[in-house]
């Protein structure tokens, strides 16, 4: 599992770690009973305070996503069903960020929904007014 953090991100680091674990579950790179990196390994590779990693793991345990086994490490909970809980949860988190970004730019939910469908559908207008023409 590869965890990436952004220090420019507004989310606290422990929340970013939690979301990265959720994302691993949704993508299938993390599966039930898989071990997570130890607090020491992960804090060292991310260059963060080990308490931040412990905080993320403890919060994930409270959410039923992982199980902390004393002296053995942290593992993905055996009964975790990513599609039922983690996927909608992660989607809400991404939606919240997209909405905040839209609002920052003065866009409403409707603008965002329309643009999302256009971009997803490969609408020819997606690049705005003339980025394609401008390039030639």
């Amino acid at each position: 599992m590869k965890i990436r953090l952004s220090h420019a991100d507004g989310r606290p680091l422990y929340v970013q770690i939690m979301d990265e674990v959720r994302s691993g579950l949704v993508r299938g790179t993390l599966r039930p009973e898989d071990p997570l990196p130890s607090v020491r390994e992960l804090s060292s590779s991310l260059r963060v305070n080990p308490r931040t990693v412990s905080q993320a793991y403890a919060a994930l345990e409270r959410d039923g996503v992982v199980r902390i086994r004393h002296g053995k490490g942290t593992f993905v909970a055996p009964g975790v069903r990513p599609d039922e809980r983690e996927r909608p949860r992660l989607a809400r988190e991404v939606a919240r960020r997209a909405l905040a970004d839209a609002s920052r730019n003065g866009l409403a939910l409707g603008d965002l929904m329309t643009a999302l469908r256009e971009v997803e559908g490969g609408d020819p207008h997606q690049d705005g007014d003339g980025r394609k023409e401008g390039g030639q």
Binding site: V39, R40, R47, R51
Partner: peptide, 30 residues
């Protein structure tokens, strides 16, 4: 930073850092 992260995980330590370059150590700071 990697050494300090591991050190904090291995040894119970209190750390006081004085710096003008907070951004360099910020992920460790609580």
């Amino acid at each position: 930073l990697s050494i300090l992260s591991e050190h904090l995980a291995d040894s119970p330590t209190t750390v006081v850092i004085s710096t003008h370059r907070v951004y360099e150590v910020e992920p460790l700071v609580d």
